[in-house]
Design a protein around this nucleic acid. Structure first.
Length: 555
RNA sequence: GCGCCCGUAGCUCAGCGGAUAGAGCAAUUGACUACGGAUCAAUAGGCCGGGGGUUCAAAUCCCUCCGGGCGCACCA
C-alpha cells in the first residue's frame, strides 16, 4: 500500500502499535484516534508526528523513549516511509518519501469535488434552524452572522453525508406582530411611532407599499380594519424582503415554518397535554406551568398565561415535537448571545420528552457582531430605525466578503467587522487573498495549456521541492479539517485552512514553475506540477464552496 | 447575586494537552526584460489578563481573582 494520505498511514501504523502493545501485555483496544497523528508545525520534525509512545508509556509501564524506538522500528518498514526519528520525550517523527506524499496530487484531481468529504453523518437527518428573524423588520447584523455560518455549516454537514434541512422559523404569532401593524398604521396616519413599536425608514416604506397594494380606498375603512390590512400585507411584504435578501446572500432555506401553524393546528395543546400526562404540568397563580426544574432548568416556565394566551415556550415545545415527527434525529438551533438564557429550558424540554439533551437538540450561541466604519462602531437601534441590515452589509462589501468576514471567526468571539477593510479590493482583505490564489491556479493552467503542458504524465517523486512537501502536507489535511469543522460546528476552520493553503500555494508558485521558460522543453516535471497546481485549485474551490464564497477563474 | 461567551503581537483574529505560540494587516528592508507584484523574501514585534492546581507536557483542563460583552418576565 502506498501511503498517499494520513488515513492510510494511520491504519498501517495502528497495526504496528497494536502489535507492540499486545506483546507488552496491553489490554486496551486502540483506534486510529488514539494515534494522534498530526502535521508538526516545525518541518524539521517530519511530515507526520505521533505522541502515542508517551500516551501508552504509563498504562504499559514502559519507558516512553524505548517504546517510541520500538514503534519507530516498525513504522520504518512501511511502504512509502522515508525515515522515522524519535525526538524529545518520545515524539515519533515520520517522513514520507516524495513519491508517497506526492501521489496525493493526482488523487485530489481525480476525486474532484468529492475530495475532503467524509461519512461522519452519512444518512443522518439534521435540521438546522437559523436566522429566524421576526418579520417585523429587515434582517439585522446578528441574524446575518447566522445566515453565513448556518448555511456554511449546512454545507459542511452535507459533505459528511448528512441529510440536511435548512429551516427558518417564521415567528408570526405573538404581540410583536401587533406592534409592527400599529407602527405601520401610525406611519400611514402621520402619527408618531408607538412607544413599544418600530420606527425607521423601512416602516414608512412598507406602509407605502401596503397602501399601493390595497385595491380600495384605505381611508374609508375603520381603523381596526386598517390595522388588519397593514398587519396581513405588511408581514407578507416584510417576509418577501427577508427572503429576497437571503437569496441574494446565497442562502436558500428548504423550509419556512410558520409558528401560527402550531397554534392553529392544535399542536401546541397536544404538546402541553403530553407533558401533563407525565405529571410535568401544574397550575399556579392562574397560569399553567411546565415543571422544567425537574429536568435541570433553573426555574419553571409558563406554558399558558393567566390571560389564556400561550406562553413563549409553548411554541417551542410543539415545534420541537414537530421536527421530531418529521424524522430529524439531530436538531440544531442557532441563536444570538442575547438568547443564551434559553438553552437550559430547551434542554429541559428535550429531556422531558425523553430525548437526549445536546444530542437530539443542540443550541449554538453566536456572540454579537459589531460593525465598524472609520474606526467608529456603527451603532444600531431597532427602535430608532438605525438598523444595520443584510442589505447594508452586501451593499458595503459585497456577498463574498460579507460571508467570508462573518464565517472567518469563531462564533464564540465577538467580532468587529470593519466595513472599510472588507470593502477593499486589495490584499488587506483575506477573502481576496484566497480568491486570488484560486484565480492564479486557473491562470497557471491556462498558461500551461498554451505552452503545451498537459497532465499526460505524472511522476510523484518529482514533487520534491521543500515548498511542494509543505503544500502536499496541507492538502493532505483537508479531509481532517472538514471532519473537525463538522464535529465542532466550526466553519471558521475551513476559512482559516483556505488561507493557509493559499499562502503555501503562492510560495510554491514563487519557487516552482509549471510552464517551461523560454525555449526549454516540456518535461514530466512540468506535467507533474500541473497536477499539483490543479489539485490546489480544486481544494481551494472545495473550501470556498463550503463557505458559500465564489471561486473566480479570473479577477 | 446567578448564568453564557471573551481576554493571545500595534490592529483584526487562529491555535478542542504536545516540541521554539501563529496568520493577515500595520511598521522597516528587499525582489518585477521569469507562468498575474491582488505575489514573494527578510527584520521587528508576546511574562498567551493575574495567581494557584492537575499532568511527563498547559494559551489549551480545574479553581480563584480582575477586566469586557450579553442575559436572568405570566415580552416575544
Amino acid at each position: 500500500m502506498t501511503l498517499v494520505n494520513p488515513a492510510d498511514l494511520s491504519a498501517a501504523m495502528l497495526a504496528v502499535v497494536t502489535g507492540i502493545a499486545q506483546r507488552r501485555g496491553g489490554t486496551a483496544e486502540l483506534t486510529v484516534d488514539d494515534l494522534v497523528l498530526e502535521r508538526p508545525r516545525n518541518r524539521d520534525h517530519g511530515d507526520w508526528a505521533s505522541n502515542i509512545a508517551m500516551k501508552l508509556a504509563k498504562p504499559l509501564g514502559a519507558n516512553p523513549r524505548e517504546l517510541a524506538e520500538e514503534v519507530a522500528a516498525g513504522v520504518r518498514e512501511l511502504a512509502g516511509v522515508a525515515s522515522v526519528d524519535v525526538a524529545g520525550p518520545g515524539f515519533i517523527n515520520i517522513s514520507l518519501d516524495a513519491a508517497a506524499s506526492g501521489a496525493l496530487a493526482k488523487t485530489i484531481v481525480e476525486q474532484g469535488d468529492a475530495y475532503g468529504h467524509g461519512d461522519l453523518y452519512a444518512g443522518v437527518t439534521i435540521n438546522l434552524e437559523f436566522v429566524s428573524a421576526n418579520p417585523t423588520g429587515p434582517i439585522h447584523i446578528g441574524g446575518v452572522r447566522w445566515a453565513a455560518v448556518g448555511d456554511s455549516l449546512a454545507r459542511i454537514f452535507q459533505a459528511q453525508g448528512g441529510l440536511v434541512t435548512r429551516e427558518y422559523y417564521f415567528n408570526d404569532h405573538g404581540a410583536q406582530i401587533d406592534r409592527f401593524a400599529r407602527s405601520l398604521l401610525a406611519s400611514y396616519l402621520g402619527e408618531p411611532a408607538p412607544e413599544d413599536g418600530y420606527g425607521g425608514a423601512y416602516i414608512s416604506d412598507i406602509a407605502a407599499r401596503v397602501i399601493n397594494l390595497y385595491p380600495g380606498d384605505l381611508s374609508r375603512i375603520p381603523r381596526e380594519e386598517q390595522q388588519e390590512v397593514f398587519r396581513a400585507n405588511g408581514v407578507e411584504l416584510m417576509f418577501g424582503d427577508i427572503k429576497a435578501a437571503l437569496h441574494e446572500f446565497g442562502v436558500k432555506f428548504d423550509v419556512y415554518f410558520h409558528e401560527n401553524e402550531l397554534h392553529e393546528s392544535g399542536a401546541v395543546e397536544r404538546a402541553i397535554e403530553r407533558l401533563r400526562a407525565m405529571g410535568a404540568i401544574y397550575e399556579a397563580d392562574g397560569a399553567t406551568w411546565f415543571r422544567s426544574t425537574d429536568y435541570d432548568d433553573d426555574k419553571d416556565r409558563v406554558v399558558i398565561k393567566s390571560d389564556g394566551e400561550a406562553g413563549y415556550i409553548s411554541g417551542d415545545l410543539a415545534y420541537y415535537l414537530n421536527k421530531r415527527e418529521r424524522g430529524f434525529e439531530r436538531n440544531l438551533i442557532m441563536l444570538g448571545a442575547d438568547h443564551h438564557g434559553y438553552v437550559r429550558r430547551l434542554m429541559a424540554m428535550t429531556k422531558a420528552f425523553g430525548d437526549v439533551p445536546y444530542v437530539n437538540l443542540e443550541i449554538l450561541i453566536g456572540q454579537l457582531v459589531n460593525l465598524v466604519r472609520d474606526g467608529e462602531p456603527v451603532r444600531m437601534s431597532k427602535r430608532a430605525g438605525t438598523v444595520v441590515t443584510l442589505e447594508d452589509l452586501v451593499e458595503a462589501v459585497g456577498v463574498d466578503a460579507g460571508r467570508y468576514a462573518l464565517v472567518r471567526s469563531s462564533i464564540d468571539s465577538q467580532v468587529d467587522i470593519d466595513l472599510d477593510l472588507w470593502g477593499k479590493k486589495t490584499n488587506d482583505n483575506p477573502v481576496f487573498y484566497v480568491q486570488y490564489a484560486h484565480a492564479r491556479t486557473n491562470s497557471v493552467a491556462r498558461n500551461a495549456a498554451a505552452s503545451g503542458v498537459d497532465r499526460s504524465a505524472f511522476d510523484a517523486s518529482l514533487l520534491n521541492h521543500e515548498t511542494e512537501s509543505i503544500l502536499l502536507g496541507i492538502l493532505a489535511e483537508f479531509p481532517r479539517v472538514l471532519r473537525q469543522a463538522a464535529e465542532l460546528r466550526e466553519p471558521h476552520r475551513v476559512a482559516r485552512y483556505s488561507e493557509e493553503l493559499a499562502g503555501a500555494y503562492h510560495r510554491w508558485y514563487d519557487n516552482c514553475r509549471v510552464t517551461p521558460l523560454g525555449d526549454e522543453d516540456v518535461t514530466d516535471l512540468h506535467r507533474t506540477r500541473l497536477w499539483l497546481n490543479d489539485a490546489v485549485g480544486q481544494v481551494l474551490r472545495n473550501s470556498l464552496g463550503l463557505l458559500g464564497v465564489s471561486a473566480p477563474e479570473r479577477m
